[in-house]
Design a binder for these strands. Structure first.
Length: 706
DNA sequence: GCCCCCGCCACGCGT
DNA sequence: TGGCGGGGGC
């Protein structure tokens, strides 16, 4: 039995009890948002609302898992019919049931960013654009924006900095891209959201079914939902026809506009206005008491975020008065910075009050974590990096996965191309070109082309030489063989995958690829063993009801961060973006330099100059900059991760693109009230006293300005 | 026709 | 640091 009154404060209680009608919860950093959501679900279950009527949508897999675990603990129930997942995972679940109505087959492949880029390359080759003036990545962004309705061809942005609009020629590439996906029976991440909408809009009866099933919908991190995500859940919440009035919908969104840091991925602050319009008479509840941080940290965070103009008014407060000062260091280089963090951790560990997992080290970018990793390894400090190149993106893992994906869906050209000559089978460019030409002219997949050009009746001439045909035939035989074995019986997928690695002799391939360094080959092989181990664990998990090959592939397609392994007893290293929703007793914000926070690329993309005002007056004259405000929110998120103690480091020099660049401290540091900060010289400053002195003075001047 | 090696380029966040 | 494209060698 839940004891809500004892466990929650008044606004929290109000939020938990408001289960009927539309609700908007504005939850400041550290205000017990997760607590409210989990209690709310537990309270619903206790009130007799059936599990299958509840849909809770989150932003990350991690949040979904955490929410589910905590609801399970609170309610003491098995949660077989409760749906707690990310928007994308919901899309997969939906499409698994309904995708056939759009002419796809159920064994569709899910393309990640890498697959997507490979396909775009392919489509560009086919079109006659020889020298596109944007790269594949930018083109992927463009396609994504078009697909999700962020912009149309007429108002699409131009290549960064040029001010030019994209040429209509890319529209053909885009169409070719989508046609190819369909032929390959594949969907990209955007399709996971747009296809369900298409299906639901076409089929009123189906929409009615979903609308009537999910009577209670909750959306976490609402400030980071995109337009397309908004459309998906509001469609289900409002139903169609007579149900179109939003006042009766039991839909609850939880968010904090100050923590909106994903606009580049389509997150749209206007969703809030849409929500207020689409669901009139909503109850608005503000959670403003912070239970996480000391007032020092909160004041610093408030000082920073108050410089933003576009925000919903709120005032976070805490009754934990005082707190340790925020300490600011400016190491000479990124290796000094890493050494500094290591020594601080060592010192604090000696005090005995902290464990390694009390520390969070936050960076702006993934690539910046390298130097800290080196230092941690050297000093034997256990650590865990989340984010970055995920385990599943590693070459050797991707190779094995591409075989599995091809086995699941032989029309998946992108994964066929990846696996067909890895390890080498003597199938090169010319063969691929022949197959590809045939596939294109017959509007079919490479696999189909292969079958039709290789396995010809006697006497029919083939455009492929006998030797190549034999190679292709062997390859197809291998895939078909495993197809029968892996799809036939939903058992021992792990063992069968090991079998596959043996049969393609991947080990010999690794040895030959890394003939100069056998250690690397061993390391990569160990990764494959780990991968197989992960399949094994997953298969043997009793909570897992669907253990087939498709289920496994769908699962890992949506996991980008490496979520396996034990977190306890390890220092947490991650990007600021990845730290959202987490908290640590001690936080280090590393690389708090101008050009990093705020990031130059972020400002460039919006066609803005890097922000380095010489004085406070100039600062106020700077026009409102959306990207600058988002960068400030990012810094705000970083600060508010800390419970007791915050360290900020800003390097004097940093290695960038092979050269050493002079750095300046982040302009946001000036926005922290100076009385909360202690500025320190570091030992490394001795090496270059003049420069260190200048930097120190600049820092002080900046802090004195406010 | 395939493969290997070298030089070049980029390095923002993530479902 | 590594991924990729081009040119020369086999």
């Amino acid at each position: 039995m839940l004891n809500l009154k004892e466990e929650l404060n008044d606004p929290q209680l109000q939020a938990v009890r408001a289960i009927h009608g539309p609700v908007l919860i504005i939850a400041g950093a550290g205000s017990g948002k997760t607590r409210v959501i989990t209690y709310r679900i537990a309270h619903m279950l206790e009130s007799g609302i059936p599990q299958h009527s509840i849909l809770a949508l989150t932003f990350t897999n991690k949040a979904a898992r955490e929410m589910e675990t905590r609801v399970k603990e609170l309610s003491g129930k098995k949660l077989q019919a409760l749906t707690v997942c990310t928007f994308h995972a919901f899309g997969v679940k939906f499409l698994k049931e309904e995708i056939e109505s759009l002419g796809y087959r159920k064994n569709f492949s899910i393309y990640d960013e890498v697959d997507k880029e490979a396909l775009i390359k392919d489509c560009l080759r086919e079109s006659r654009i020889a020298n596109p003036d944007i790269n594949y990545y930018e083109m992927g962004q463009l396609f994504s924006g078009i697909k999700t309705g962020r912009y149309t061809w007429a108002d699409s942005p131009g290549a960064a900095g040029t001010g030019a609009r994209y040429d209509a020629a890319y529209e053909n590439v885009y169409n070719e891209y989508n046609r190819s996906l369909k032929i390959f029976n594949a969907v990209d991440f955007d399709d996971l959201l747009t296809l369900p909408i298409t299906i639901l809009e076409q089929n009123t009866a189906l929409l009615k079914k979903y609308h009537e099933r999910f009577r209670y919908i909750m959306v976490d991190e609402f400030q980071d939902t995109s337009l397309i995500q908004y459309r998906l859940f509001s469609l289900i919440a409002r139903g169609s026809g007579a149900d179109l009035i939003g006042t009766q919908a039991n839909v609850c969104v939880v968010g904090d506009d100050d923590q909106s840091i994903y606009s580049w991925r389509g997150a749209n602050y206007r969703n809030l206005a849409c929500f207020e319009k689409d669901f009139p008479d909503l109850a608005e509840i503000k959670l403003e008491q912070n239970y996480r941080s000391t007032t020092t940290i909160l004041e610093a965070a408030n000082g920073v975020i108050s410089h933003n103009t576009m925000r919903k008014e709120k005032s976070l407060w805490s009754d934990q008065s005082g707190g340790k000062s925020i300490e600011l260091f400016y190491p000479g280089s990124e290796s000094d910075e890493a050494d500094f963090i290591v020594s601080q951790i060592n010192t604090l560990m000696m005090g005995g009050t902290f464990a390694y997992d009390s520390f969070g080290v936050l960076f702006r970018t993934n690539s910046m974590t390298r130097s800290i990793e080196e230092s941690f390894l050297e000093s034997n400090i256990p650590y865990k990096v989340s984010g970055g190149t995920s385990f599943f993106q590693r070459k050797e893992i991707k190779d094995i996965i591409s075989y599995l994906k091809l086995i699941a869906n032989t029309h998946d050209d992108i994964n066929l191309l990846r696996s067909i000559n890895t390890p080498r089978r003597g199938i090169g460019k010319t063969t691929i070109q022949t197959l590809s030409d045939f596939a294109h002219s017959h509007k079919t997949s490479l696999w189909d082309a292969m079958e039709r050009l290789c396995r010809l009746p006697e006497g029919v001439p083939s455009p492929l030489p006998q030797k190549t045909r034999a190679e292709l035939d062997t390859f197809m035989g291998l895939i078909e063989d495993f197809r029968v074995r892996m799809l036939g019986e939903k058992k021992d997928l792990a063992a069968k995958t090991r079998n596959l690695a043996d049969q393609i002799d991947y080990w010999s391939y690794l040895i030959s690829e890394h003939s100069k360094n056998e250690k690397i080959a061993r390391w990569k092989f160990a990764n494959i063993e780990y991968f197989i181990g992960a399949i094994d664990q997953w298969e043997k998990n009793p909570d897992n009801t669907d253990t087939g090959l498709f289920a496994w592939l769908n699962r890992i397609s949506l996991i980008t961060r490496d979520e396996g392994g034990e977190d306890r007893g390890k220092v947490n290293v991650m990007t600021i973006h990845a730290s959202k929703g987490l908290e640590f007793p001690v936080v280090f914000i590393a690389g708090a330099e101008d050009g990093i926070i705020p990031h130059t690329r972020s400002l460039e993309a919006a066609g803005e100059e890097p922000f380095t005002p010489a004085s406070a007056e100039e600062d106020t004259q700077t026009p409102v900059s959306l990207s600058m405000e988002e960068e400030r929110r990012l810094f705000y998120v970083a600060i508010t991760r800390a419970r007791d103690k915050l360290f900020i480091t800003s390097c004097q020099k940093r290695r960038r693109l092979q050269e050493l660049v002079e750095c300046r401290p982040s302009p946001f540091l000036e926005e922290i009230p100076p009385h909360l900060i202690e500025v320190h010289q570091t030992e490394s400053a001795v090496e270059n006293p003049k420069q260190a002195e200048d930097y120190f003075n600049l820092m002080r001047k900046r802090l004195a300005v406010t």
